[in-house]
Amino acid sequence: MGATFILFWILSTLAFAAAMGILVSKKELYSVLSFIVLVFAISGHFILMNAQFLAIVNILVVAGALGVMFLYGLILVRSHRDSEQVKILYMRIAGVIASLLLLIVLTAAVSKASQNEVVLRPGTWIGHVDKIGEELFSRFFVPFVISGLLLLSVLVGTVVIIINREPAPDPKSVTL
């Protein structure tokens, strides 16, 4: 219990700090970096729960591929600097209050679920890569194929929306 408990708190603090970093940092770059830290923290949680395959997939896909995509998106966008507009204050306050309310409501709703209070026990086989592979190619074959189609549609769509052979309009002609 001891080591798991301590690691849980360390990783949770890290995840919380990273999430706050995404939320409050002024520069987008630091948001992206916080996001990568968050992904690592969540992968750490996965490893604590003995789901190593998911942890490594999370790192590979989200921190590795998606984070890089975000960085490149940022490079493209920030190379043309413009002043960032600030949202109106009362809208901000309303947003903060709304999400805090959501947190309270969710937590309160679930805290009543006393019958589900279950202890996690470390050390089971289901997170192992061969078991997941077996499941993926037998029982979950149909969702697997559907997710392939989903990725393919994103590929096609990205080509459709990004590559256009017509010249882009003059940025000055866009009235704001």
Partner: peptide, 25 residues
Amino acid sequence: LTLFLGIELMVVPLYFLVGSDNRNL
């Protein structure tokens, strides 16, 4: 699971189709 994937597959192509007319802001 199939509900989630089906809904995603249903709407994700539409995000692109909606913006496909690149002459129009």
